[in-house]
């Protein structure tokens, strides 16, 4: 199968005061199209940092990251932004919905940012809402939704522009086990039915079982 994401000799460090902390060291990995991969490791192992680098939200100190054959570091801000909204969907542990926008508006954000006419996407919006089971709640604000519902909205938003890749940072970390299981089932469904490539960060071995493959990180290195 063809690689959709690849990282080669990636290094990333941060400064804590004057002290340099090497978070990622010589990361080499590849994810093939349609794969569902879990990124696991103890706290501070660099899982989220790696996820954000692979999603183009941050840049590595050195090394190469290619997504769909394009090197992210070489893109301008405009190109990288367009790439994120068209090719990737992000899901975060704390949902990160925009509080003063209603559910419909939150889901439509990628369309709006892409400069597309909203009217054309009404049907798509209804479809996505149906997938996440929130058709009746589209006029509500995030404050009026439960955690699980908010995460479903985040998933709907990630699907709206029909990206090939979904990146999720501990997507059920803030949910109870029942709701978490529901959300994971939804991921599985999206992976199998919509053929999306999913990369999730998780602490849980149980949740990792939903994926095809687990990449383990320890002390900034791939431990697989």
């Amino acid at each position: 199968m063809e690689d959709i994401i690849s990282a080669s000799e990636v290094y990333k460090s941060f400064y804590l005061g004057d002290v340099k902390i090497e978070v990622l060291k010589d990361i080499n990995l590849s994810i093939t199209r349609g794969e569902f991969v879990s990124l696991m490791g103890p706290s501070g192992s660099g899982k989220s940092t790696l996820l954000y680098l692979l999603g183009g939200l941050d840049k590595p100190d050195s090394g190469t990251i290619k997504v769909k054959g394009r090197e992210l570091s070489a893109m301008s801000d405009k190109e990288a932004s367009r790439f994120r909204r068209q090719e990737m969907g992000f899901i975060f542990q704390f949902y990160n919905l925009v509080p003063n926008l209603n559910i419909e508006d939150n889901i439509m954000l990628p369309v709006l940012l892409d400069g597309q006419p909203i009217k054309k996407y009404r049907q798509k919006l209804d479809d996505v809402l149906a997938v996440v089971g929130l058709s009746a709640r589209k006029r509500h604000t995030p404050r009026e939704l439960s955690g699980g519902e908010q995460q479903r909205v985040a998933i709907a938003r990630a699907l709206m522009n029909d990206p090939e890749i979904i990146l999720a940072d501990e997507p059920v970390g803030n949910l109870d086990s029942k709701t978490g299981t529901d959300v994971m089932e939804l991921f599985k469904h999206i992976n199998e039915e919509a053929k999306k490539t999913i990369l999730q960060v998780t602490h849980s071995e149980e949740l990792a079982q939903y994926s095809h493959r687990i990449i383990r990180l320890r002390d900034g290195k791939v431990w697989e």
Binding site: S81, N96, D114
Partner: peptide, 16 residues
């Protein structure tokens, strides 16, 4: 800031 970072994460460019 957080909402604005969300905008950026889902593809809003600096100019936008």
């Amino acid at each position: 800031k957080r909402s604005l970072a969300v905008f950026r994460s889902i593809g809003m460019s600096q100019r936008q």
